[in-house]
Design a protein around this nucleic acid. Structure first.
Length: 557
RNA sequence: GCGCUUGUAGCUCAGUUGGAUAGAGCGCAGCCCUGCGGAGGCUGAGGCCGUGGGUUCGAGUCCCGCCAAGCGCGCCA
């Protein structure tokens, strides 16, 4: 149960009570959304601005309304005090005894702490990264990987039934260019004068891949007809590329539930089914030998070619089929596509065809993250997969580590543009908030080790002894995690989580400074036990945050 | 040119969906170790929230213009 919702309910009940008794006039209010965490501690734990919002309708001063509501809001658990403040707030303070009791509640919830029911078991799919399997994943894609995977974790905690998916573009012209390029590299190993096509992949990784394949199959493809050789060697190359990408993702602590093949859309018949659907809807038209989708009629800025005059489908076609598959065949209630800003222009098209398929707009979320500009010092690093001049995701992770990398990308709003200076990244990561958070977790682990060595069993500790301001501040902070998770599930902007973890660490370190946990004095045993319970609860919350962010929670550093 | 996104402290960025005196980290200037991990704690300086209008009890947050930056505008994906 999110405490803010409880307060919201108290406010709402008080309002109705005041209206029923005639103290306040009737008013139209949708309810909810008026309660927030004030910035200043002196304003309490929660504040409602409802009186300010109702003043006009009720033709009363906000302060008068606040008074009437406050009168009807009982100061009983979890609230200990209700008061009004100008220009028209109703403030609430949480009961200190109730706060202390949350320590037991958090320890009991354990790794499940923070779970809420907002998602209500809704089947949600998060698709992210999905770069073409024609080369290594570059460093800029780390942002999508981190945002997508963390979001999936958080949605799961918020009660959604989540599936993480990678869409493998194993069909289409880029794949053909990959096949031909790979065959050329392979033939070169045998002294054959084969040229990599203009639009092919020039990167040196292609030569490495060709060499691996030569070692595996020998000269099998040398004498084969070019077309079938390209297809065959491409098949082997594709498998290896996918495996490589899977390892790239693992280096960032990203695991997928499913790798979905674009090609399977043709095998499974979705492609033809969708074209028929669009044709029945009279949304397809032949122009210049090609088939066009009239997406401009549905809000897109221009019509799109669905089938080329060569008869080959464009990626627009397969994307429609893919989403048809997501919504109608696999029946996801909700689909979230995490896309780089270079796919911005695709958004209107996707909105257009989903509306053509009669999918409610709110079932599809397109989360666009801004591209990362890679730099070395003041030098901008140009990224191009085809020329092979790339900084790979693996290089980035090896240089600054997966935890710093994840925190770095996660702590910024996906929509904000950012530079990543590779030379500074490592140096900064050593003086990074990441360590501030992980250090707190390691400190707690150290305290619990100490207690264990002394043979202190604190299961019977009484949390009511937790009355120090630093202790209560820490508990207040811990109780916010469910709210943070709920907020992120709503906004799909995960940056609140790393900032929350930072706030928790900021509450923990002063506590540590002021409150000795394991006392040397045997007379303090009761307090020692209570504080051991407290730090154990804090450990639970840190571990939960770090795990949701896909980061490690070290016992020692 | 058109479209989408962004502009907050010296630097990197938050800002709880329109609320009370705009926050953090780094950097800078100081202070704090007879004890569980100093990768820590405390204090201070630093702001016309790009800019000009508008909406209202109230705007960093919403709307419009302008300026600047990133991305997009292929029968590539």
């Amino acid at each position: 149960m999110i405490i803010r919702d409880q307060i919201e309910r108290v406010v709402s009940a008080a309002l109705h009570e005041a209206q029923a008794s005639g103290a306040l006039p009737p008013a139209h209010w949708e309810g909810g959304g008026s309660v927030e965490r004030p910035q200043k501690a002196e304003h309490g734990d929660f504040a409602s601005s409802l009186p300010l919002r109702l003043a006009r309708q009720m033709r009363m001063s906000p302060m008068a309304i606040a008074e009437r509501i406050a009168e009807q809001a009982p100061a009983r658990e979890p609230v200990s005090r209700v008061w009004t403040a100008p220009p028209g707030f109703v403030n609430f303070e949480l009961d200190r005894g109730w706060l202390a009791s949350q320590v037991d509640a958090i320890r009991e919830a354990g790794a499940g702490f923070g779970e809420i029911e907002a998602g209500d078991g809704v089947r949600a799919q998060v698709e992210f990264v999905s770069v073409n399997p024609t080369g290594p994943v570059h460093a800029g894609h780390a942002r999508g990987a981190v945002v997508g995977s963390a979001l999936a974790n958080i949605l799961e905690a918020a009660g959604f039934d989540v599936q993480r998916e990678y869409y493998v573009n194993d069909a289409g012209s880029q794949m053909e260019a990959f096949n031909v390029s790979l065959l050329a590299r392979y033939l070169q190993l045998f002294g054959v004068d084969a040229e990599i096509p203009e639009d092919g992949y020039q990167g040196s990784y292609m030569a490495d891949l060709a060499e691996e394949i030569r070692q595996e199959v020998g000269d099998e493809f040398v004498s084969m007809a070019a077309e079938s050789a390209a297809a065959r060697i491409g098949e082997i190359g594709l498998r290896r590329m996918i495996e490589m990408i899977r390892e790239d993702m693992r280096s960032l602590n990203v695991e997928y539930d499913r790798w979905f093949s674009e090609r399977s859309l043709f095998d499974g018949g979705q492609y033809h089914r969708v074209l028929d659907l669009l044709r029945e809807g009279e949304l397809l038209v032949e122009r210049g030998g090609a088939t066009w989708f009239l997406s401009s009629a549905l809000g897109d800025d221009e019509d799109k070619v669905i089938v080329r005059k060569t008869g080959a489908p464009t990626y627009f076609a397969t994307d429609v089929a893919y989403h048809y598959n997501k919504f109608f065949e696999r029946e996801f209630d909700r689909v979230i596509d995490v896309l780089g800003a270079d796919h911005q222009g695709h958004v209107r098209f996707m909105k257009a065809f989903t509306s053509a398929l009669n999918v409610d707009a709110d079932r599809l979320d397109l989360l666009i993250y801004q591209l990362v500009t890679l730099k070395r010092g003041s030098e901008t690093v140009r990224l191009s997969k085809r020329t092979g001049n790339i900084v790979t995701l693996r290089e980035l992770v090896e240089e600054i580590g997966p935890d710093a990398c994840r925190f770095f990308f996660l702590s910024k709003a996906p929509g904000s543009q950012m530079d990543l200076d590779l030379e500074l990244a490592k140096r900064e990561s050593e003086d990074n908030p990441v360590f501030y958070i992980q250090y707190a977790h390691a400190r707690i682990a150290g305290i619990l080790r100490e207690a264990r060595e002394r043979g202190i069993d604190f299961e019977d500790g009484g949390v009511s002894l937790l009355t120090h301001d630093a202790e209560l501040e820490l508990i207040r902070r811990m109780t916010q995690l469910p709210e943070v998770i709920g907020m992120i599930a709503e906004s799909l902007e995960p940056q609140a989580l790393p900032h929350y973890a930072l706030d928790l660490a900021k509450s923990f370190h002063p506590f540590y400074q002021q409150c000795r946990v394991v006392s040397q004095d045997p007379n303090d045993l009761a307090l020692t036990k209570a504080r051991l319970k407290l730090v154990d609860a804090v450990r639970v919350v840190f571990a939960r945050c770090l795990s949701l962010m896909g980061m490690s929670a070290p016992e020692r550093m």
